[in-house]
Design a binder for these strands. Structure first.
Ligand SMILES: [Mn+2]
Ligand SMILES: [Mn+2]
Ligand SMILES: [Mn+2]
Ligand SMILES: [Mn+2]
Lengths: 220, 220
DNA sequence: TTCTTTTTTTAGGTTTACCTAAAAATATTT
DNA sequence: AAATATTTTTAGGTAAACCTAAAAAAAGAA
């Protein structure tokens, strides 16, 4: 596999993530994701097309080629292994690992990453509960569901919060919920769609419908 | 401390190392060290002078300012901590660590490096025996002498190898010499400046002039 | 000292990855 | 269907970090 620039890698990874939801990715979506301008995205799409990492016809949106997908998975593997290292070995807290891994992921030595994987004991998920692709780029596809759709007494891990406001973070902090928190729904109430949730062996507590809609989990 | 580009950091570090020997560094020396062209060096020297990292008057050579020295020491700290990590935790061999550390050293999170240092148990030297600057940029200057200057029958410990090639590593491994090895020179031969060396109570063996010049020891 | 060689700088060009503004294509309303 | 709005691309420009070739300065020899 060839080596790609930091910028190319960031684009490839962003397309990979966006196409999980949309199938095909648009110029504006990607510009927004990468905090860049649509014109810059078009420039890069032309380049990645020439490198055969991308299917792209002008005005038609784009998606990764199978080669592009392979590249994306190695970058995601690096990112998540470093996140695991930072959290597990260096005792970073869950919200600090991403920013640093965003840089470490671009150090492209295959040997480094495979040895790191071994050193860490071949972890299967990162500190946010997202699966780590293996040496061959194989990744467990676990689908995220909103907490509202989680059946009672099914252990799950929080993997995504769709609202980024100070208000929801404040509430989540108060309820001791963060990305990576393992929890179970104990009971659902039809009257207001609120639910009782339990984290580990702590006492159960209530979550409103509005909050539950914004918390996404993976069944473990 | 501000953040500098990968390129700026590579220049700063190279100047630091070159000025240990020369005091003042020239354009050609630096171009040669960084495998770049003299015109590129001049461009960068102007930039680093504006940023006050460098003392530089055209045609007069250059040396780092005290701020430049501080920056150099943090880059060297990162480099050597990563080398230690690679060797000690990921079981990289001696000659493989440098190339990877050359990239890892540019990830500039202070917290990352200080936590890594702690995780590694605050190592004092890297796998080549070079001292690791502490959090404040303080670096030990231990008086090391080349094996060529070690008097006969003086017990000493190997603390540094100045050549980092695979070839010297191969030879050192064959002779069972590594950083920390305790040895004594038993006899020196004026004809070819070779010497007989003994490790502990093992039988003495021969070391060539070329090898002895690259092995640095501290008298114990 | 004057000539010659070497070193260093300047001038001008390239590539990558950005940008803004305008044009073109596509999508949405009326 | 035509008008309007939005999205995307093109055109042209900038800054960083390189480059080559030529000019200028410094160093070394005659
Ligand atoms: Mn990144
Ligand atoms: Mn993650
Ligand atoms: Mn480097
Ligand atoms: Mn080293």
């Amino acid at each position: 596999m060839l080596n790609y620039s930091t910028s190319e890698e960031n684009y490839i990874k962003a397309i990979f993530h966006l196409q999980q939801e949309d199938g095909t990715v648009t110029t504006n979506e990607l510009a927004n994701e990468l905090k860049t301008k649509p014109a810059s995205v078009t420039d890069m799409m032309k380049k990645l097309k020439v490198k055969k990492l991308l299917h792209y016809q002008p005005y038609q949106g784009f998606r990764l080629s199978s080669e592009g997908n392979k590249v994306a998975l190695t970058i995601i593997r690096r990112h998540r292994l470093w996140e695991y290292f930072l959290a597990e070995k260096l005792k970073f807290s869950w919200d600090e690992v991403h920013a640093v891994a965003e840089h470490l992921e671009h150090v492209s030595s295959k040997k480094l990453i495979d040895k790191l994987d071994e050193f860490l004991g071949f972890p299967r998920t990162d500190p946010h509960g997202d699966p780590i692709p293996d040496m061959n780029g194989k990744i467990e596809t676990s689908k995220q569901i909103p907490l509202t759709e989680l059946a009672a007494n099914k252990p799950a891990v929080v993997c995504h919060v769709s609202d980024q406001s100070t208000e929801i973070l404040d509430l989540l902090r108060h309820k001791n919920i963060s990305i990576g928190t393992k929890l179970e729904v104990k009971k659902k109430f039809d009257f207001d769609d609120s639910m009782e949730v339990r984290i580990g062996r702590h006492p159960a507590f209530t979550i409103s419908k509005q909050l539950a809609e914004n918390i996404f989990v993976q069944i473990t």
